[in-house]
Each structure stands twice: as C-alpha cells, then as structure tokens.
Simulated scan of single mutants.
Amino acid sequence: MSDREALRLDFLKAAGLDDAVRLALPGDASTRRYERLTPATGPTLMLMDQAPAAESPPCDPSWSPDQRRAAGWNAVARLSAGRIEAFAAVAAHLKALGLSAPDLPALDAANGLAVLEDFGDDLFARVIADGADETPLYLAAIEALATLHDAGDPPAVLNGPGGDWPMLTYDETALQGGADLFVDWLPKLDDRVSFDDDAVADWREAWAPIVASGARGASVMAHRDYHAENLIWLPERQGAARVGMIDFQDAVRAHPSWDLHSLLQDARRDVSPALEAQALDRYFALRPGVDRAAFMADYAGLAALNQARIIGIFARLIARDGKPRYARFLPRMWRHLNANLEQPALAPVARWFDRHVPAEVRA
C-alpha cells in the first residue's frame, strides 16, 4: 500500500466513510484524482485527492513578476496548484451568493483531501449529447455568471473551512504568460513553425494592448474553467442554482468576459453562432449597465488570447505528456482563433500570425 493510499484510508475512516465502496473516476489534464464513494447508508459522495506536493507552489500575493517566473508556472498564471483550501474557500463564496458549489462534509486541507457533495453525472455536455435542448442550459449558465458578476469585486481574501485563500488578479504577467504557452509549445508539436527571439518579442508587442485591457478590466471573480464539462445540470433547484459548478479552485479576479468566452467558444464542443449570440443577448439583458460595445471588444481580444493559450496547453499535453487525445480539440480552437482575429482591434495579432504561422497549420 502506498503512503498516499494510507492517508486516504485514514481520512475516510475519520470521516466515517471507511465502509464506502470506492470507484475511481477518469482523470483529466490535472494532477487531481476523484473517486465516487457509496456509503452503506446515505447519498453517494465524492473524494477529491490533490497531493500538495504534486504541483509547483501557488502564487504568493507579495511576489514580483520576476519572483513568480522563478517559482514556476502556477505562480506565473496565478493558479492554485489544486490546493484543497482554495477549492473550499471558493466554494463557500459561491454558495454565499446563492450559487451551487458542492458542500464539503469532510476536509483535510494539509494533506489535500476532501469529501464533496456528489452533484451526479449530468454534465451539461452529457445531458445535451443525450438529447436535451441545449438552449435552456446555456441560458441558465449565463444567469449564474450574471449573478456572480453582479456581486462585483470579490474580497481580497476568501474565508473557507480549509483556511483563508487570497483572491489574486489575472494580471499582465498571468495573461501574457498564458499567451506565451503558444510560442513555447507549438513548435515542439509542429515542426512547420519556429519562433526566434524577434518573433517572440513581436508576439508580446502585438498582444500588449489586449493584455493591458484584460488586466485593467479585472473586476469580478472568474471561475477560469467554465464550460459544458465542468457544469452539472441540477433541474430540481431554482434559477441560477440549477447550474452546479465544479473545478473552480483556480478562480481569480478577472475581466467578466473570461468565463463567457470559455463557455461560448468552448474547446471541447461546438456552440453555434446563433446560441452564442442568444446567450450574449441574455447576459446584457441581465446586466443592462454594461457598455456592450466596449465589453465585446475585450471579449474578442481575450477570447483570442485564451485560444492561443489553450492551443499551447494542448500542444504541451500532446508533446510533453503523451496525451494525444487532445489533438482532436485543436481544429476547433484554430477555428475560434481565426474568427476572432478578423476583428479590427486584433489586426496586429493577425499580422503576426500571417507572418509566422502558415495557413495550413491553422486548420
């Protein structure tokens, strides 16, 4: 028996769940693992297991950009390193707003273990694939985002059952660091491209106005991974609470467009232009004080940046981590990116792509 398994068994025994049947669930792109727990009595539960030592350290709020870059990727991008206390603190904040995040009946933050309420298997993506009308689900997801955004600037520190957690900003260092994954990793996947120092300098210059605008507009909590495979349909609940949220431990203060384009320009499934337009109309109807034109300019720019970031992440997962299944998502991400690059404000970025990334790569 591994030391980690011994920790899990001790934790489950202390939680009164040592008799539960354990079923491991498929993994994702992270270092977390999940099990569904079926106790002798009572509802099923989830075991979240995130060993603190499995990741580089999260960002200290006091660190400079240089210190963050020296500490590793989690610090650059202001990621939580999967820490259980981050998940617990964000969950408490979401629940205080009337949104649906899992209860945590048992928690051992120091060892990276938690028992979660089980929201079931009705992921938006799965329910839609089984024939449900996607429109009500997406509009409910928009209602949940509007609720989160209407709450305004989140506290600087979130209080949760696992301890306090800083609500960091998705700032220039994090935004540009994310975009740079593209130039760092695409050449390692595709030998038709290479980027010398001048190309990388031009890349950063082209993105600079978008990065600055995204950091300047950071004013709400962003889930950071808000899409149809991280949202669970809970139709027995009311209003925005029908949207069960998971995988939100990397939440930050960010531009309110971030979760919108993550949802509506999804890496994993097609969302029609008509549904995207309907969902955006619903968002602005719920938030009538928002300047739609200015918002949508940022939406296109930050969506394009995010798509470049995700292409870089997928290239890394394939080339470094040996996970070829992520290749099937690349054509969709290129389609989203190419469409956003048609916006006039993105002309400098579009010119960079025309110079450095052949059209056949962007297909």
Score class of each variant (00 low, 15 high):
Gly16Asn: 12
Asp19Met: 03
Ala24Glu: 15
Leu25Asp: 12
Ala29Met: 10
Ser30Ala: 12
Ala40His: 12
Thr41Asp: 14
Gly42Ala: 11
Pro43Ser: 14
Ala54Thr: 08
Ser56Val: 12
Pro57Leu: 08
Asp60Glu: 14
Ala77Gly: 12
Ala81Met: 09
Lys95Cys: 12
Gly112Ala: 10
Leu123His: 12
Asp130Lys: 14
Asp130Ile: 04
Asp133His: 12
Ala144Met: 14
Ala146Leu: 06
Leu148Asp: 00
His149Val: 05
Ala156Cys: 06
Asn159Asp: 15
Thr169Asn: 04
Ala174Ser: 15
Gly177Arg: 02
Asp180Asn: 15
Asp190Gly: 03
Asp197Arg: 14
Ala199Asp: 14
Ala199Cys: 09
Ala206Leu: 07
Pro209Glu: 08
Ser219Trp: 05
Gln238Thr: 15
Gly239Cys: 10
Ala241His: 09
Gly244Trp: 01
Gln249Ile: 03
Leu263Phe: 06
Arg269Ile: 12
Ala274Cys: 00
Leu275Trp: 00
Ala279Thr: 09
Arg287Phe: 05
Pro288Ala: 08
Val290Phe: 02
Ala293Phe: 04
Ala297Met: 12
Ala297His: 11
Tyr299Lys: 03
Ala304Leu: 09
Asn306Ala: 11
Arg309Asn: 03
Ile310Cys: 00
Arg316Met: 02
Arg320His: 13
Ala327His: 05
Ala327Pro: 02
Arg328Leu: 11
Arg332Met: 05
Asn340Asp: 15
Ala345Ser: 14
Ala345Val: 11
Ala347Pro: 04
Arg355Lys: 13
Val361His: 04
